[in-house]
Every structure is written in structure tokens, then in C-alpha cells.
Design a protein around this nucleic acid. Structure first.
Lengths: 311, 311
DNA sequence: CGTCACCACAACCACCGGTTGTATCCCTAG
DNA sequence: CTAGGGATACAACCGGTGGTTGTGGTGACG
């Protein structure tokens, strides 16, 4: 199916006749006739009843019309998403399951009129490069790369400290605990598939491991969170870390347990980065929204690596 | 833009390489390469970075991808809307501003998983024919055509009596009234543009006029409700009838008044019609929803033509 | 009953979009 | 270091889609 054909259908339906539609589309009447005929052939139904005074929609045509309009609207948004110049606010998040996604959803709910696009870049280095080049407008990143301060032209603000929790199956030895001290996790198998070397996530967990003597297995490819949840649920000796903001949806009967970690609670600090000179009007809105909704986090009793962005 | 091209983009993005996408789409790798190149040329941005081991999305490509998926989803729904067999529930309403639209919105809110299409047919005769032919699944119609009972195979149930109210501008002589008796409207100019001869609306108002001695002008084409509202707001001696369920949105400062009519209150009775043998699974859901939400209307003090469908 | 406005069909032709064949690149195995 | 495999891009070719012009048919209206 061709979007030009769909547009032709909509214009013809609005005009009530092919001739006027042809004029509007700057083609001949015969071309419109052929386009509509081809669309009807593809769909297998008659869309117009032709009369000597024009063409009016059949019932099928009436039913199809709003879908055709929606198609054109979506097309316009799709094209706008890559238009240089005034395009939707483009924000990078660190992972689809992380807290940043929830923050963006909250912003979208508060300001549904602002068009957003979400991308996921590999690491902070590329995120900073993308911000400086203008390819993205902002990035939710947890941390500066260890030892590398942010460039002068990048601004940042810490927006959320996400406490990590332990996810276990119901047969796990810690499944019944209401909370577990971080030091007590030493010796337990903790599995974090998909930790790619070179990313901040990995650097974060490397620090966590070094400081508290945990063992984290990053082996195996990441088959998606469903597969991870299945494995955790079925393996008594296995656990994993999960952001405390995550909204999990799992089938009933899985019996998964999400256990807070204490003394200290490891938190993953999310900061918003942006270019000081970025003129996108929606960026200010996003910053204002985050400022307004940011919970006054209490840093006491929490842990984060020393190299994260300051508050 | 071509939807095959968009589909190619999505498949290639999921596969991570053109070759596999080509196999899935049953075309050659060169065809995929050309399609993507054409899409990139049309959009003016690079969507993939080509590597010797495949192709991965650029930032622009990542931003475009969800829009492309949405485009395919909408396309599928559009095609399904005219598919013979299992297509969305197709319901005819009498006018986009009427109460039936509100009922359908309520149904959609209660059951967002049920796909709906709304059409507007000219009069009850065509609606009944469309129901019998299977072109539509149900129809909100106010009335049987005077003197013509419904065919045996059409079932009906009265779902809502919509009280008519008087709409005036702020300078109208009745603008200050909290309510107005129907008999008192005799002598006032009431304007109902767009009343087409042969429809039930027109038959309804003809009866109303005959029984209570009103004068209703149906002159002039219907330029849309915005134009109607403008005229009503600006003309002190003019009023119109409007369904009591209508949610009006007008610019501030118009100063329009919506005044209940009493002694009796003319009500427009909406009934749902459907074919007794219609097997569409969503039809039962719609009927159940309407049964459950139907307010227990009080017929006392209301008026409707004698020839409407019985309760 | 002729004219007008509109749509459909036929013939023609350009160009889009597919295929086959080939070059190039990079990673990897030997 | 080299050969091979797997990936993309470019070139040449060609058929069919989709445009145009020209023409015919049909219902409404004066």
C-alpha cells in the first residue's frame, strides 16, 4: 500500500469528487481514478459509489476514512521525528527498564502535547558526543566515566537516586526476608546478564563488587527480561539486582520476591545531561518538570560510587 | 513514502543486517539496500551505519523506529477495518454531535480492547438495509420511520432518551431563564440548519412543530457547528435546539446559554438496532454495556413522537 | 433533448524498483 | 600473512507500476 494513494483517498473523500481531488493533488482526474481503483482492488472492497455528480463514500469507505487519516497523521509524526530543525525532543535513556523511562513517561503524562522520542545509546561517551553534535537533546546518564569530568558545555543535574533491590525466586534462601543488609549478599550468586564491558552499568557494578566483596556473574547473553525473570524464578540459588522504580509485570504464580537492600542501600544515581546552548523549547519544560517532581532524596544510608556526578 | 519500504526498515532494524531482512521479506539483499537508501534519501537522514558485519541504527534511525512500527500497526488496523469476516464492530450513529457518539465513547473507554468503527448513514431505511446486508453491525437510531414497523429480523432496544435544550446567545430574551416551558417557544425563531428532508431528525421536528405550534427554520446549508454557534451567539433573536448530552466546546466570551425545556421536555429517543442473527462477538458486549449503563429514564414530563420505537 | 460535469477505459510512455553480476571491505581462521 | 566468508554498495538490465493524453459513457439540468 502506498501513502500517496491513502492521501488521495482522504482528499477525494473530503472533496466528494475525484476531479477536485485531482486538482488539489496536482494530477489528472484519471490518475486519481486509477489510484482509488487500485486501493479498492488491494483492499477488496468498494470505497466510493461513483455518480455523475461526484463520488461518495460507501459504508466501507466511511469505516476506512478515519484509519486513513490516522495513517497520514502518524506518517507526518514519523517524518517529523527525523526532521532537522524543529523536531521532537530527543532524549537518551540508559535502559528501557530503568527509572529514566519512568521519568519520561511521567513527563509525557504531564505534557502530552510535547512530542518526544527516546533513544538508547551505548555509553556516556557517545551520549556526550551526541549531545554536543545536536543529535540528541538530553540524556539520562547515571555517572561520569571514571576519571573523566564532563566537558564545559555540558550541564547536568541529578534527578533521581534509584535504590537497587534484590530479585529472587520463592525458593531462594532470602525469599522470606523483609530486607537484607548489603554485606550479607557476599557469597550469594548474583546474575546480571547483559552487562556489557565499557558501559557505566558495568563500571557501577564493578565498584559495588570491589567495595562489598560480592560476586556478580555477567555471563551469558541477555535474552530479554522475560527470560531473566523465568530463570530467577526457577533457580533457588540465583538472584539479581533490579531498580526499585521498575514496574514488573510477570505472570501470576511466578512467585518472585523483590527485597530491599540496606546498610547501605546501593542507589543508582540518574542525572540529566544537556548542552548549555541547546535552544529546544521543550528542554526547559523537561527540566522544570524534573525539578518539580524530584523527590527530596535522602542520601543517608545509601551508597554510590565515588565518581558519580555530584548532586 | 511506501509502506513496503517502512516495513523493510523495521525488519532490517530488528534483524540488524540487510541480508537476513532480505531473506525474511523474500527479496534480494540488493533490493533491501536500495529500499533503505531510498528511504534515507526521502527523509534526508542516514538511518543505518553500515558495517562489514551488518547494519545498525543511527540515532536518527532509533528515533524513527517506533514511529515506523506505529505506522505498520495503524496500517494493519486500517486494512482490518474493511476486511470481510472478522472486522471491527461497525456501528452507525445518527450524527457526530448526538448522544450516540457519547455512548460509543463510553463503551470504548470501558472496553478499549474492542476495535470499533463508526459510520453515519443517511436515514433509518439505509441503516436497516445495511444491518440486514451485514455492512454494519448495529445502528443508533432514534425512531422507526413513521408508519413502517421494523422488519422481523431486526431487534431493537431503547437505550437513552436525550432531552433537548435551547441554545441561545447572551443577548437573547430568554438568555436569563433557568428553564423555559415548551409552549413558550411559540413565536420565537428557532434555527436548525442542515435538517435534511427524509431523515428521522426532520420527521421528529416536524411533529414537534405540529404539536406545539413552534416555528423552526431549516433554511441554509449546514456550515458546521462552529458556524452555527457563532451565528447563535451573535444573533439575539435566534435560538436552536441541542441535545442535552452534547459536550460543547466553544471559545470563551461567546456567552452561549443552554436552557432546559420543560412542560414537557422534548426528548430524542435513541435505540440500538441490530440483526438478530449477527454473530459478531463484540455486539453482545456492546449490548451488555448499554444495558448496564442505561440510566433509568423517567418518562414522566417528557414528550416524543407517537411513532418512535417503544421502550 | 442537447449540454454540462464527472468518471471510466484505452493507449502510450517514462521511470521506479526489482533481479543478476560484481567490487569492496573487514573480520577471522589457518 | 593470506585466503575465505559474509556483509554492503554499485552497475546494468528489464518488466511492470503509475503517470499522461484522448475518448466514451452516463445521469442531472435547463
Amino acid at each position: 500500500m502506498d501513502l500517496d494513494t491513502v492521501r488521495t483517498f482522504v482528499v477525494a473523500a473530503d472533496a466528494g469528487q475525484f476531479q477536485e481531488a485531482a486538482a488539489e493533488l496536482a494530477v489528472t482526474q484519471q490518475a486519481v481514478s486509477k489510484r482509488i481503483a487500485a486501493l479498492e482492488r488491494n483492499l477488496g472492497v468498494r470505497l466510493f459509489t461513483r455518480t455523475p455528480r461526484g463520488a461518495e463514500l460507501t459504508i466501507d469507505g466511511q469505516a476506512f476514512l478515519p484509519h486513513a487519516r490516522e495513517l497520514l497523521r502518524v506518517t507526518e509524526r514519523a517524518v517529523a521525528s527525523v526532521r532537522t530543525g524543529h523536531r521532537p525532543l530527543r532524549v537518551d535513556v540508559i535502559a528501557s527498564r530503568g527509572a529514566a523511562t519512568g521519568l519520561m513517561r511521567g513527563f509525557h503524562r504531564a505534557h502530552p502535547e510535547i512530542d518526544l522520542d527516546v533513544v538508547m545509546l551505548f555509553d556516556i561517551e557517545r551520549a556526550v558526543a551526541a549531545i554536543r553534535s545536536g543529535a540528541i537533546d538530553a540524556s539520562f546518564r547515571a555517572v561520569a566515566a571514571p576519571g573523566r569530568p564532563l566537558p564545559e558545555d555540558i550541564a547536568s543535574v541529578r534527578v533521581l537516586d534509584e535504590p537497587l533491590q534484590l530479585l529472587t525466586g520463592s525458593a531462594h534462601v532470602l525469599a522470606g526476608a523483609r530486607s537484607v543488609p548489603l554485606a550479607q549478599l557476599a557469597g550469594h550468586r548474583i546474575w546480571m546478564p547483559g552487562l556489557t564491558p565499557g558501559t557505566e552499568w558495568t563500571a557501577y557494578y564493578d565498584d559495588l563488587v570491589a567495595e562489598f566483596g560480592l560476586t556478580i556473574e555477567a555471563t551469558g547473553p541477555n535474552f530479554g527480561s522475560d527470560a531473566l525473570l523465568d530463570t530467577i524464578a526457577d533457580t533457588p540459588a540465583l538472584a539479581t539486582f533490579m531498580g526499585g522504580q521498575t514496574r514488573l509485570v510477570w505472570p501470576a504464580g511466578h512467585g518472585l520476591r523483590l527485597i530491599p537492600v540496606t546498610d547501605p542501600t546501593p542507589v543508582y544515581p540518574h542525572s540529566l545531561l544537556w548542552h548549555r546552548d541547546n535552544p529546544h523549547p521543550a528542554l526547559a519544560g523537561l527540566r522544570a518538570h524534573l525539578d518539580a517532581t524530584a523527590a527530596g532524596d535522602d542520601a543517608a544510608g545509601t551508597w554510590a560510587p565515588g565518581w558519580v556526578l555530584p548532586r
